[in-house]
Simulated assay, not measured.
Amino acid sequence: MVVHGIKLQDDGNSSSGYLQDTGGDSRKVNQYATAKKTVMVDGANIIGILTYCIVFGVTLSQLGRRGAVVTQFFTVVNIVTFKMIRLVMWLSPLGILFLVMGQIMSTTDMTETGQTLAIYLATELAGLAIHSLVVLPGLYFILTRKNPYAIYLKAIQALLTAFATASSAATLPVTMQCVEKRMKIDTRISRFILPVGATVNMDGTAVYSAIAPVFIAQYNGINLSFGDVIIISLTAVLSSIGSAAVPGAGVAMLLLVLKSIALPDRGISFLVTVDWLMDRLRTAVNVASDCLVVGVVSHYTELPPCNPSETQSEQQQEEQEMLENDLV
């Protein structure tokens, strides 16, 4: 076929033209071209910041004495921040009152908003239940071939304390008591795993940080793409590692997740109204996960017999005093 002429018309996304052959026949040919380009979006690079902080902390811990000055600096900053937050918490009921009232007055359809909030509560409850009653016990059974729900029964006192205090740090002494006396776990394992778990193992917070942004997006009429869901999931997991073991820390982590995909914070006040209950349930899930992790580590760890002359009373008293003064 010999082409005598080509006529192309560019409409921005596609090109169309007419090709003529020697026989005088013509046909329309559509050609689509895809161009890739990099665009800038609003919002901070939260995933990059969290990744840098995690790598920085791991590298700092490997320096030993050379990084003691930096470690001490951040420890003091952490204590000062907690004391400042404690002062702010005295005014938080008044601030939350005006925040919720302003949100209610700006809402046009309270029935639809209430239904959306009820769906959010049901979704988070279902997520916490599936994670704590199916996923975690399933992993524990696969790794140890033991009944995971027996761990829950032995740690019931710690779970109730976690629900009452909404703080993994405040529950830590009770968790240690349940693990060491009722589960018969070696103190060398519990004294290492549980403090670390109360700091970085925040399963319930991760579930909350993944579900709440979807509610915020639906409340503001924003459709989330598949990429947005992936970013939310990654940010929720990374931010939960650095979440503080104190009541109300999940709301601060939620703001980081919202910033990662440039979602507005409009509607977050509705979550604050029910967060007092959900935060307690999330804390119970965190403590339950810590107890299961201790059971797994104890199953695969073979330690020599502990010297009975070594006492842990002074160490336990020191840890409890530190938690009460600095973390709670």
Rank of each mutant, 00 (worst) to 15 (best):
G5Y: 11
I6D: 02
I6V: 10
L8G: 01
D10Q: 10
S14C: 04
S15A: 04
S16C: 01
G24I: 04
Y32A: 07
K37C: 01
M40E: 14
M40L: 14
N45F: 09
I47K: 04
T51P: 00
G57W: 11
G57C: 14
S61A: 13
Q62T: 09
L63W: 07
R65P: 00
A68V: 05
T71F: 11
F74P: 06
T75N: 13
N78S: 15
V80F: 15
V80P: 08
T81V: 05
F82E: 02
M84G: 04
W90N: 05
L94F: 06
L94T: 03
G95I: 05
G95F: 14
G95Q: 14
V100P: 00
Q103G: 03
I104V: 15
M105P: 00
S106C: 02
T107Y: 06
T108Y: 09
D109R: 12
T111P: 00
G114T: 12
A118T: 14
A122C: 10
A122N: 03
E124A: 03
A126M: 13
G127P: 03
L128T: 00
L128N: 03
S132E: 01
L133M: 11
L136Y: 05
P137G: 08
P137R: 13
P137I: 09
G138F: 11
F141T: 10
T144L: 02
N147M: 03
N147G: 01
I151R: 08
L153R: 15
A155N: 15
I156C: 07
Q157V: 11
Q157A: 13
T161R: 12
F163C: 12
A164S: 11
T165V: 10
T165E: 08
S168G: 14
S168A: 14
A170Q: 13
P173Y: 10
T175G: 14
M176E: 04
V179E: 09
V179H: 01
I185F: 14
T187Q: 13
R188T: 06
V196I: 15
V196P: 03
T199M: 14
N201S: 04
G204H: 11
V207P: 04
S209W: 05
I211A: 08
A212Q: 03
G221T: 09
G221R: 11
G227I: 09
G227Q: 11
G227S: 11
D228R: 05
I230S: 06
I230V: 13
I231R: 12
I231Q: 02
I232Q: 02
L234Y: 04
V237M: 14
P247G: 03
A249V: 11
V251W: 02
A252H: 05
M253L: 09
L254M: 10
L255I: 04
K259G: 06
R266M: 01
F270E: 02
L271Y: 06
T273F: 09
D275I: 04
L277D: 02
L277Y: 12
L277I: 15
L277H: 02
D279R: 06
L281I: 13
N286L: 09
V287N: 03
D290R: 00
L292K: 00
V294I: 15
V297P: 01
P305H: 13
N307I: 06
S309R: 12
S313K: 11
Q316S: 07
Q317I: 02
Q320A: 13
Q320G: 00
Q320D: 12
M322F: 14
E324D: 15
L327H: 05
